[in-house]
Design a protein around this nucleic acid. Structure first.
Length: 173
DNA sequence: TAGGCCATCTGGTCCT
DNA sequence: AGGACCAGATGGCCTA
């Protein structure tokens, strides 16, 4: 089942998306593999240019951001570097999971890549409408099911609210 | 050029 | 003690 789910307009509250909803026509920002593997991206970013940073635990001078702020030596330094490594790996895993989620969402134009927040909101909407369709079928609201698939986002909100209301009002019978 | 998104570093907190 | 998780800070990249 692959309902024509769209992101609700109010789910994308950032000014960038407000009104236009043109995220699907956006060009691909980073060269992630077509398989959704972020490894290439990660490699690219690991080799980024040195950055500068202010402040720090014991260092107040500007230092490259993607290098340790302070000279990592001694046990403390080793622990910090190990922790950084784990954190990097953890975030890569998180990104892999997001890519997997992107891959199972309804097809998008090839040059579009949902951002993290868009992916989560899209998935949320996708699940919600899917549940609403199942509930509508189960409750005999067959006239609403096609609308769930074909109405614009604004209508989706109204319909899902209607379904929710219907479920609530009929749950006791 | 501003704003959005992102990766990374970092210190803090909680848990085992 | 060490690992997992989190949030803040920072700066690069990209698009409008």
């Amino acid at each position: 089942m692959s309902p024509n789910v769209r992101c609700a307009t109010d789910d994308l509250g950032t000014p960038r998306h407000a009104g236009t909803l043109n995220r699907f026509s956006r060009t691909l920002r980073s060269p992630v593999n077509e398989d959704g593997d972020a490894s290439e991206d990660s490699i690219k970013n690991l080799s980024r240019k040195p950055l500068t940073v202010t402040g720090g635990e014991t260092c107040s001078i500007k230092q490259p951001k993607h290098k340790p702020r302070c000279e990592q030596s001694g046990q403390r330094g080793r622990r910090r570097m190990k922790a950084n490594d784990r954190e990097r790996h953890r975030m890569h895993n998180l990104n892999s999971a997001l890519d997997a989620l992107r891959n199972i969402l309804p097809a998008l134009p090839e040059d579009a890549k949902l951002t993290k927040i868009e992916t989560l909101r899209f998935a949320h909407n996708y699940i919600w409408v899917d549940v609403a369709v199942c509930a509508g079928v189960a409750l005999g609201m067959t006239e609403l099911v096609p609308q769930l698939h074909h109405h614009p986002p604004e209508a989706d909100i109204n319909i899902t609210v209607k379904v929710q209301f219907f479920i609530q009002t009929n749950s006791g019978t």
